[in-house]
Design a protein around this nucleic acid. Structure first.
Lengths: 204, 204, 204, 204
DNA sequence: AATGAATGAGAGTTCATTCAT
DNA sequence: TATGAATGAACTCTCATTCAT
């Protein structure tokens, strides 16, 4: 798509790496505050305390740093979830732990939460990549639950997208919009819905 | 200094109204193709076959037409869902019809589907308004289901957001990304998840 | 200079004349508040409660109404001064009455006071015309004072411009800037300066 | 939203300073020729032989350069007058030298003479600042003349505004309108008026 | 590696003016 | 006479990007 050569990522001196990281952190802050389009390179370089031109020693375009931010966020998020799920004693427990980890993690970076959504405008492909990666994680863990007979053998991808979407919206609703934790009651309601469904049990 | 008056709201001639509508339709197309920020007023007026300045006879800013587009979409969508749900024979049936109506409607305007998501960058408040409106619709129909004992008395808002999010993501996954209908199998998997839950029934 | 034909001034029906006057009064207000360049035709027509296009039934350009405002103001001001000077009992008294009349009149229309100054940017020629007209009035009255031996036979035009400028700046200082009358003390100091000069009399 | 920071004030390279000065000189010329509102930034940058955007590296708005021009002019003018007045042998002589210096200086920059007047439309506050600064200079020198008994103890500010206005209007009349020096005869008439007053001496 | 001056395309917006009704 | 829709040139200002130092 773009013939732009990525600015040299390799062979960075220690000082160079530091500058690069300063820029990443600055971009994170600026994008969160202003959004991708309202933010300017100058905003970022000022926040990072470097000169305007310095940016282009490390990133070829404005989009490139955005891209890296999203991909990092995605990797870190999946890593955090995975680590927490490994502690589980059952497949249901694993899923609950996954959600918990997601909310916990979102709470530590509410800014980035918003940035991810911006990809919908900035780069559709990146946006799809982001959710497909997350969905793939769900598919793996759900597969194990089905194989062990703990979960119903429903269409894997559909369930994956459904669970992911619930996490996404509850996180948005509480953490991003309100700046709060997802309330215990809400969390439990969602878990009940997911594991037991909405229908009232027939009582015998 | 310039107290940004809404472009004349009064005294719109029939011809004026027609032009206004041409602009709305053009904006819908252009925003969908290019996204809010990449789209220019000139793109819109050219698509509408009017002069550049004509835009500002009807809308005070670039954002104003975006706003109107989203609000119209929201209203029409809710109307379509409501009408379909009224035909239902049970609360579960109502919900299923609601989802169907949503997917059907999304299919007729996949462009607008994308535009709504852009609000996350363009106008957070509008974005929240959009989903809160939809969620409020779910809350109403779920309340009836609970009152009649058909649904579990779970936290209303949480369930509302969960169902809404499932619709949103499945629509995105199939209709917007793939340009297809939501497959029957996926639809049924989602409904099973929602009504019966993920857990395998304990067998006697 | 401009080939623009002046919009028909003659043959106005009574209703037409009324509309024309509404526009003049509106323009006066709008120009005073916003200045010539910041004011728009729409501002004027809205203030006058007529439609946009109506303006051009009465004035050919934006500048034309400005021009007329200034010329009217000038005529009225000179008329008011002349009438007051006629009551004088001496040439000094006439000049004092002239100043008083000027300040009184300025006080009733502080807005227009500002508009006149705007001509310096809008139309240099008009600006010169304005002050030359006022100066000519001074020349006339000073000539009489000199002929009667009451005033020194100084260069007429220079004295005319000097007196005019004093009126102008004191009016600006007190009436336009402060919204007050020119204080008695200031008025008398100016009169002493003008008639007796700045130098201390040699004492006996 | 955009908190309109003064274009970088810090860290101006020698080259940067040169460009800034080129812009100032170009603006002076363009404003004088076309007036503030008729002049465009493009006019200025073309005159300065730099690209359009370069302007905004040095000035945040169109008004900012205008402001700086006026303030510089004011400072330089007062400096020139002060230096000349210091050579005086009497207070009357000082005032005469002050007027001479003013007219001389105005002659070297007739363009700027006009620009100052434009402030009346562009920025009232700046306009007041300009004349208050000049008036303050007069007040100082008049005070000394009064204290030494050479001048009558008239209301200081009134006399200051009166003298200033005379200088202003004679300069306008001759230097700006006609492009000539203030004629000797006119100069002397004004001085006589100022120091001896208009009234014919009573003859013994 | 870092700087900051320079660029110029392009944006949103304004508005005097025209004209069909 | 009055209307208001339409026009399009012109404006100020922004900013990603380049490049000489």
């Amino acid at each position: 798509m773009s013939e732009k050569v990525e600015a040299q990522t390799l062979k960075l001196t220690k000082k160079g790496l530091e500058t690069r990281n300063k820029l990443l952190r600055a971009a994170e802050k600026v994008f969160a505050e202003k959004g991708f389009y309202e933010a300017s390179i100058v905003n970022i370089t000022q926040e990072a305390n470097v000169a305007n031109g310095t940016y282009y020693n490390y990133f070829a375009t404005k989009k490139e740093i955005f891209d890296e931010l999203i991909r990092d966020y995605n990797r870190n998020l999946r890593h955090a979830i995975k680590k927490e799920m490994e502690k589980a004693t059952s497949h249901e427990d694993a899923q609950r732990r996954g959600f918990k980890a997601f909310f916990d993690w979102a709470k530590t970076r509410p800014d980035l939460y918003n940035i991810v959504q911006q990809a919908v405008v900035v780069d559709q492909e990146l946006y799809r990549w982001y959710y497909q990666k997350i969905a793939a994680g769900f598919v793996k863990s759900l597969t194990r639950g089905i194989n062990d007979g703990e979960f119903k053998p429903l269409d894997l991808e559909t369930v994956a997208y459904s669970l992911m979407s619930i996490g996404q919206f509850l996180g948005m609703r509480w953490i991003y919009w309100e700046g709060k934790d997802v309330p215990e009651e809400a969390f439990e309601a969602a878990m009940t819905l997911i594991f037991d469904g909405l229908k009232q049990k027939d009582e015998g």
